[in-house]
Design a protein around this nucleic acid. Sequence first.
DNA 1: GTCTATAGCTGGATAGAC
DNA 2: GTCTATCCAGCTATAGAC
Lengths: 208, 208
Amino acid sequence: MQIIRTVLKSSDGDWRAARRANARAAVLDAAWGLVRENGLAALSLRELAKRAGITTPTVYAYFESKNAILDAMFADAAQSFVELMSSMPSSDDPLADMVAAARRFSDFCVSDVPRYQLLFQHSVPGFTPSPESYGIALSALALARDLLARNGVHDPRHLDIWTAITTGLVGQQISNDPGGDRWTGLIEDVTRMFLAQYGDATQHKGES
Amino acid sequence: MQIIRTVLKSSDGDWRAARRANARAAVLDAAWGLVRENGLAALSLRELAKRAGITTPTVYAYFESKNAILDAMFADAAQSFVELMSSMPSSDDPLADMVAAARRFSDFCVSDVPRYQLLFQHSVPGFTPSPESYGIALSALALARDLLARNGVHDPRHLDIWTAITTGLVGQQISNDPGGDRWTGLIEDVTRMFLAQYGDATQHKGES
DNA sequence: GTCTATAGCTGGATAGAC
DNA sequence: GTCTATCCAGCTATAGAC
């Protein structure tokens, strides 16, 4: 959970802003707990308020609408994802680096399915993230691009293939073996396959 | 749209059953039209009845609940999928056969996203297909297994990799480039990659 | 900022006349 | 089988007192 900080001029205003940010964060925490337990579709302001220990109208003191809550959650998820992926160590072994990155990605997704659905599947009817929130998500894709570039994959089409493979494994894992590792256990194999075809340590064969 | 047939003894009963099946099919058609236009979550019995030219209680003359409608839709989708994939021609070119199969699969998915979500993503809160309906879907997976076996891929783990790759392309296509071909256009490339690693026409390299 | 109270809407499902 | 009428529950959001 990231706490959104607002810079103000007076120390008095700073103090009030901090309290307000804390209250907002508490509501967001309750929202995450709710969707983790009952799914994204179960996010209702009544139940959210009950969990946060306030009443429904008070929620509107911190968020102007339900979509504003979803947008804050989206930004929160994107921020967590960027921080996780930007701290990837870089070695001289492309295979090990990419396997490690793919494992982090799949752990991030399967450990919090509603967060994954909100961030990557755009699966909430009527909700579209604001440009600001979506911008955070876009910077995460840039991280993946850099990772592949460090490991000898430069073609944007190959980046698309890499995202399809990793999200494909995660999607199958979540849809068809929740809680297991039938697909996430294949990460090393598919990374090997990918780098054998598109990594610069091998000949490119059979490309049209 | 498949019409569910019920075998009865008397020709009079047969006639009545046919009329009933027609009426059921008409409601199902209206349901498909509704979800295709407004998404799976927008399936409501009020709007469904309006489209079918009947009233809400009449819907209950044909389906005992909303979930029963979803189950019939699931079975319908699975049946369509099995029929589409079971008519795949088989040549002596594994690459061409698998590319053709993957194209059929992705066309099936992107041409009707709600059907894809219902059949493959289990994304309707509170709905689980009945064992009978799910059995139809399972027979579709058997078709994919046979296709890969004909093309020299026998390891069940490799079948899982294949389903992850194909659903990954479809998922990215739907989520991030709806209506386009940014990911579906990569089908031939990824099939080549997959067969280079796991097809029997090449050496298996780098497997643990 | 926080509450009580409620408006206004949509949903699934049912009762009972015909 | 099909209708009118209705029940009951859930939802987002707002009004207005404090």
